[in-house]
Design a binder for these strands. Structure first.
Lengths: 206, 206
DNA sequence: GTCTATACGAAGATAGAC
DNA sequence: GTCTATCTTCGTATAGAC
């Protein structure tokens, strides 16, 4: 395995387990058994290494997402959501492939307050998110735009938190977490019900 | 204002805006116009400063949450969720009080991969979360335990992401975000629908 | 009791030798 | 391509002023 690939693999795992800011380049290069300066040579900087970690995996996932979305004719809310979630979830079935760690990293990065760090992931999903948001909105034509926006936020949050912690041990309050395929079904059930919920009391703006 | 309070205020804001790891004690003490060593004197360490930031605000919020929960007799799903969310949301109505920044910090810390950082917040809500999870489960007796667990994760994720980003400008995909009170109503509608959704296809474990 | 000045080791980044 | 040396900034610790 090349130095570059060794760094990518170890960085992905350590970023996911301890967070980007809390992981030092010395941790990565020591565990990958390469020289400290190799990171700067191959990737330029720590933040560019993070970008490379995201770019490597999002390519095939996003391609499959678009394929699934384009294959739908007159899609409903569930089909759109499933087309977005399934391509990532199905890769969890390959143990040892690193996809579980990657998903964990995606989830935590999605909620990172640091704009520069979050941008490394957002630049990978910006185009695809726009396509899916647009198509999803079309399945809910009667929903007020501000309610739709709020609910998309809620779905994104539910997804991100699930990605980040669905396999985490330190969850004393919520036990008995099911298998990846079952989590996907639970997430789709939940998100469809949330997106299509009746609109309750309207609060006047201002 | 005392040195201790100045440090707490500035730390809360900078941790919320840039993340805990990306904020240096020198950033904090420079903006608070106090000496660097004052942090170590008053709080002991950077992580203990974070704990103090959480402890200051969670006290009154959690007390009100328990009051509202105890006041309910034979509560339904919506009432339990509202008793948890409302005490924090209502404080957003006081502009300049720092509660919006605190909420942002709570949301991002909830999704932090670093166990030590997340523990600073979890220790503040552990007892209360157990009470609410237990009461919430009682309102959904027919829901399979693993589905309930998944859905609680989803609600927590929706909440955390909303806290962290509901006032953020860098959200090009989702516009027209409503006012705090409307976000609370939207969140309650969404979470109630998600928690009470019919259980779809059951996936065999393993 | 409070606060300040200052020093130490470790971190990320980078220039230049090989 | 790879590695050493070095720069700046970080969290932390300590001695002492008020």
């Amino acid at each position: 395995m090349s130095t570059k690939e060794k760094i990518l693999d170890v960085a992905e795992r350590l970023f996911a387990d301890h967070g980007f800011a809390s992981t030092s380049l010395r941790d990565i290069t020591a565990e990958a058994d390469v020289n400290l300066a190799a990171v700067n040579y191959h990737f330029g900087s720590k933040i560019d290494l993070l970008k490379a970690v995201f770019a490597r995996r999002f390519g095939p996932v996003n391609a499959e997402r678009l394929e699934r979305l384009d294959a739908l004719e007159d899609p409903d809310t569930e089909q759109v959501l499933r087309a977005f979630f399934a391509p990532l979830f199905k890769r969890l079935r390959e143990p040892g492939s690193g996809w579980a760690k990657f998903m964990q990293l995606v989830g935590s990065t999605h909620s990172d307050t640091n704009d520069e760090i979050r941008a490394c992931m957002l630049e990978q999903i910006r185009v695809i998110a726009a396509r899916f948001t647009e198509t999803l909105a079309a399945t809910l034509p009667e929903l007020p735009p501000d309610v739709f926006s709020s609910r998309v936020h809620f779905v994104v949050g539910a997804m991100a938190h699930t990605f980040a912690f669905c396999r985490h041990k330190d969850m004393p309050l919520v036990h008995q977490l099911p298998e990846p395929d079952a989590i996907l079904e639970n997430l789709v059930d939940f998100a469809v019900a949330g997106m299509t919920a009746p609109v309750g009391n309207v609060v006047a703006p201002g």
